[in-house]
Design a protein around this nucleic acid. Structure first.
Length: 420
RNA sequence: GUGAGAGUAGCUCAGUUGGUUAGAGCAUCAGACUGUGGCUCUGAGGGUCGCGGGUUCGAAUCCCGUCUCUCACCCCA
């Protein structure tokens, strides 16, 4: 036997039995996005490397060590680690914002990060996400959060928590960075090794550290929200007020910071308690400078991305996944003997043409074996095709659930099956 | 990328202190008189014990390496 080739590390196959649940998520997404008037967009799976370096930030872990980057002649290309940069690039490239000033776009597709795989985290993973391009208004932030919550309801996931924060604009963030550094400086020696490094590279991440001592130090540090400038404060308060007015529950999480450099002002995360420590199912926020940084006009944007696998894990833990039903087969045609194979083949085509899903045996197996297959596939009906039927033109139609049988002409079968 | 654990039929797992032809359940396939599934019964196929090397008279079992997965970090969806 030839050597088996395996999928590369961290590249999962999505097998047939997993698809119904994924399809449910995708259709939930389509419903939710349609309700909020979003349009679908499909950017390519890889881009020029510099798009991500500029968009996500060259000091982020993703760009530093998690990207799949290849040389293509003189160019460097990278499999997308997230889609926001691509969507913005596409909008800028096609001058969408010149056609009209405001766009709502969503996408569904695979992303790639070279991480150490473990449950719920692989190197190719799927995100459902969206971006509202071209508005600075807090209404859009609030709507985006409501949309994310709506998606999970459509998907059947109960108990999703919404956490939000504001990380301000570049101006007030620079001021806060200084304040934060001054507050942490005296305790610098007590920080964990990672946080020592973060102190220079990105102090804000210290707020996110899970180490007890770092947490304690972070707790005592001044919070971003109290150092927002007037505009950013006003913006955040409006977002919160809108959410409240919409009846959306949420928690203001002072230490919520996001991993990408492009975020400004509102950041949010939706999480599910069933997932334990790694509980995020969705992350997003506002990014007001990215479009301009990628060569477009000044345009405020808000977006989020949902992790498909974490969401599925949460659905499974809450038991909601069990409600997903496998596809149904309407009719299984049975050839009583080999002389009827051609008739079965022809009738299957006719039924399918009439909109009835039909399956048959291709391996010349016994009648009993064919019945077994019909049962295993969950066929709603079987149609017996034997000498008697061919002679009379009336076929024995059996309802598998009840065992009831009746005779029906070829032309009647589709109607009877679809009618029930 | 770091640390730890695991890897035996398609799946879930047994496999005694290293000892003949590696087992079970489920699944698959086939049979149980005449043209009928689910339940039951009978039988069959399926494993170079992740891969490579080493120790040994002898390795699924011990040692080393390697790959993959899992868990915890890092980070993130």
């Amino acid at each position: 036997m030839a050597e088996k080739i395996r999928a590369p590390r961290g590249m999962p196959d999505t097998l047939p039995h997993e698809m119904p649940l994924i399809r449910r998520l995708e259709s939930a997404a389509q419903r939710a996005f349609a309700l909020y008037a979003y349009e679908e967009i499909r950017p390519p799976l890889f881009e020029e490397t510099r798009l991500f370096v500029r968009g996500i930030g060259d000091a982020t872990d993703i760009v530093e060590k998690e990207m799949y980057t290849f040389a293509e002649g003189e160019d460097s290309i990278t499999l997308r680690p997230e889609a926001t940069a691509s969507v913005v690039r596409a909008a800028v490239e096609h001058d969408l914002l010149k056609q009209k000033g405001f766009w709502k776009l969503y996408y569904i597709g695979p992303m790639f990060r070279k991480e150490r795989p473990q449950a719920g985290r692989s190197r190719q993973f799927y995100q459902i996400g969206c971006e509202a391009l071209g508005s600075l208004e807090p209404t859009v932030d609030a709507e985006s959060i409501l949309l994310a919550a709506r998606f999970f309801r459509e998907a059947g996931l109960e108990g999703v928590k919404v956490n939000i924060n504001s990380i301000g604009c570049p101006t007030c963030r620079a001021a806060y960075r200084k304040v934060l550094r001054e507050a942490i400086e005296p305790h610098r020696a007590q920080l964990c090794q990672d946080c020592q490094a973060r102190f220079d590279r990105n102090v804000f991440r210290i707020l996110d550290c899970k180490k007890e001592l770092c947490k304690k130090i972070a707790m005592q540090a001044p919070v971003m929200r109290e150092h927002l400038d007037a505009d950013c404060r006003q913006h955040f308060e409006t977002v919160c007020a809108l959410l409240k007015a919409a009846g959306q529950e949420f928690t203001i999480e002072d230490h919520l910071v996001r991993g990408f450099d492009y975020y400004t002002r509102t950041v949010f995360e939706l999480s599910h308690p069933s997932l334990g420590a790694r509980d995020a199912v969705c992350g997003g926020g506002r990014y007001d400078n990215l479009v301009a940084e990628l060569g477009g006009p000044a345009a405020g944007c808000v977006g989020f991305a949902v992790g498909v696998v974490p969401t599925i894990l949460a659905l499974e833990k809450t038991g909601a996944a069990a409600a997903v039903e496998p596809p149904v087969l309407d009719v299984y045609l049975i050839a009583v003997d080999d002389a009827m194979r051609a008739d079965v083949f022809r009738m299957a085509q006719e039924l399918r043409a009439a909109g009835v899903s039909a399956e048959m045996d291709y391996e010349r197996r016994s009648l009993k074996a064919q019945m077994r297959s019909a049962n295993k596939l969950g066929a709603r009906f079987t149609v017996m095709v034997g000498p008697e039927e061919i002679a009379s033109g009336k076929f024995k139609l059996k309802a598998m659930a009840t065992g009831e049988e009746e005779m029906a002409a070829v032309g009647e079968i589709a109607g009877k099956v679809l009618g029930k």
